[in-house]
Design a protein around this nucleic acid. Structure first.
Length: 422
RNA sequence: GGAGAGGUGGCCGAGCGGUCGAAGGCACCCGCUUGCUAAGCGGUUUCUCGUCGAAAGACGGGACGGGAGUUCGAAUCUCCCCCUCUCCGCCA
């Protein structure tokens, strides 16, 4: 949710935002509704004020054993008017709320304007991919050969685009999750959370997946739940409707969860292997901060995620996403991409976003300032990291010419071996 | 899933259909007083929306788990939903 004051005081900023993001919304309609709803509220309040005064008068008279029939008749008429006006207000309010929830966040000034990947800006890391000295097998080939993935049988139990890890593959996956959790809890000071991933509708509105990404999520048939597409949803909604003591900030959570995405409309793309799947594992970082420390904390969040790819010794780069590539609720997003020599592609393993107060307004997450007053917190999150593509990067980048996979140093204690394969 | 009990301010806890935003206590903060491991006295202390205002703020509407209803008027009555606790049943 954007600050509604902007709607009244600086509508041009919002108009520009919509244009930058390529969003089509009737802003004038929204502004008009806002005006109408406030006028309606004022009228309603005036009626209520009159009614309250009359009711009080009636109360006084009755206690003196009077029967103020005339006043009561007046009050009845007034009450009717209140009811009618309430209905009017509700209708305008509903229409307004419906439209306003479609207003995307305002991008930070440093975000490049553009519509697709070509407008994203290189920040740091490898400019060009490394050249291995031999032909690296794509992950699906090496993993089938080493019996780490069963790509043929996974569809039997779930369908296409589901991963079945097996043997050393399952162990590697588990090692990655544990390594990430340990890294962020012990080195970066995050508190581990293990949340439910079936989340109710209002939580998805809170973080901004709804209404826009409805068709990208799995919804339960008989209950009002969605399968969470990311731990951002439970972790950010953890403090919804709260006023946090200022000294509690910043709050830093890390969680491992499975993530579920329908990937509707992406068929035909990335069909081979495990690059794009319906269920995957991810370790997610979420922070709540005071606005004045928001961007400093955000840079540290990026570094925390970056530390994970560094520790795994993977070739990577960091990109600053352009307006067209960012999600709806984000003010700024960095992607960390690792290189896949088997596919000759950069793969996104982490998306680090700052929402400023956008999510906090939607989910009503505030904090008490040290001096006086309350304000919305900043929320931000980043993957630290998502496993399937990290898995790909390891089995491809750590592949040897004789068809083995070496284990990155930091994972050895989790794996108990130095390499996979004979 | 069935039966019962309950959900009130930062916390505990009262509350008759009408001066209840809500007694009392605790906590907090601010005064005053007295002086000794601290007490006493007085006062303050929520959030939200609207109007006006540059702002400080002023005025008003609203909030007692959530929503609907009855009523001139609801924390208080009715209905639905959610959550917590106890017991029973069922079950990874």
């Amino acid at each position: 949710m954007i600050d509604l004051k902007l709607l009244r005081e600086n509508p041009e900023l919002i108009r520009m935002t919509l244009q930058k993001r390529g969003a089509q919304l009737d802003l004038d309609e929204i502004i008009k509704l806002d005006k109408n709803r406030r006028a309606c509220i004022t009228e309603l309040q005036e009626l209520k004020k009159q009614r309250n005064a009359l009711s009080e008068e009636i109360g006084k008279l009755k206690r003196r054993a009077n029967k103020p029939e005339e006043l009561m008749e007046q009050a009845r008429t007034l009450a009717e008017g209140v009811k009618t006006k309430e209905n009017d207000c509700r209708q305008i309010e509903e229409r307004f709320a419906e439209l306003v929830q479609w207003l995307p966040n305002i991008p930070n000034d440093s975000v490049p304007v553009g519509s697709g990947a070509e407008s994203n800006r290189f920040v740091r890391g490898l400019k060009a991919p490394p050249k291995p000295g031999f032909e690296v097998l794509p992950h699906w080939e090496i993993c089938e050969a080493l019996d780490m993935l069963d790509l043929k049988r996974a569809p039997k139990i779930s369908g296409s685009r589901f991963i079945l890890y097996k043997g050393m593959g399952a162990l590697l996956e588990r090692a990655l999750i544990n390594f990430f959790l340990d890294l962020h809890t012990t080195k970066h000071g995050y508190t581990e959370v293990f949340p439910p991933v079936l989340n109710p509708t209002h939580c998805l509105y809170g973080t901004g997946q709804l209404p826009k990404l409805e068709s990208d999520m799995y919804r339960c048939h008989d209950d009002e739940f969605y399968l969470s597409p990311t731990a951002e949803v439970p972790l950010t909604n953890l403090h919804r409707e709260e006023i946090l003591p200022g000294k509690m900030l910043p709050i830093k959570y890390v969680a491992y969860t499975p993530c579920f995405r329908r990937e509707a409309g992406s068929y035909g793309k990335e069909v081979r292997g495990i690059t794009r799947v319906h269920q995957f594992n991810k370790v997610e970082l979420v922070k709540y901060t005071a606005p004045e420390h928001g961007y400093a904390e955000f840079e540290r969040l990026l570094e925390d995620a970056e530390a994970a790819v560094k520790a795994l010794e993977l070739p990577y780069r960091i990109m600053l996403l352009c307006t067209g590539d960012m999600t709806f609720a984000s003010a700024i997003t960095y992607d960390i991409e690792v290189y896949s020599p088997g596919m000759d592609e950069w793969l996104e393993v982490s998306s680090i976003s700052c929402y400023e107060q956008y999510q906090a307004r939607r989910a009503n997450i505030r904090y008490r300032k040290s001096v006086k007053g309350v304000d919305f917190v900043y929320t931000m999150n980043g993957s630290g990291l998502a496993t399937p593509r990290t898995f790909i990067a390891i089995v491809e980048n750590f592949q040897t010419e004789d068809g083995r996979i070496k284990i990155p140093a930091v994972l050895k204690k989790y794996m108990g071996v130095d390499s996979i394969g004979k």
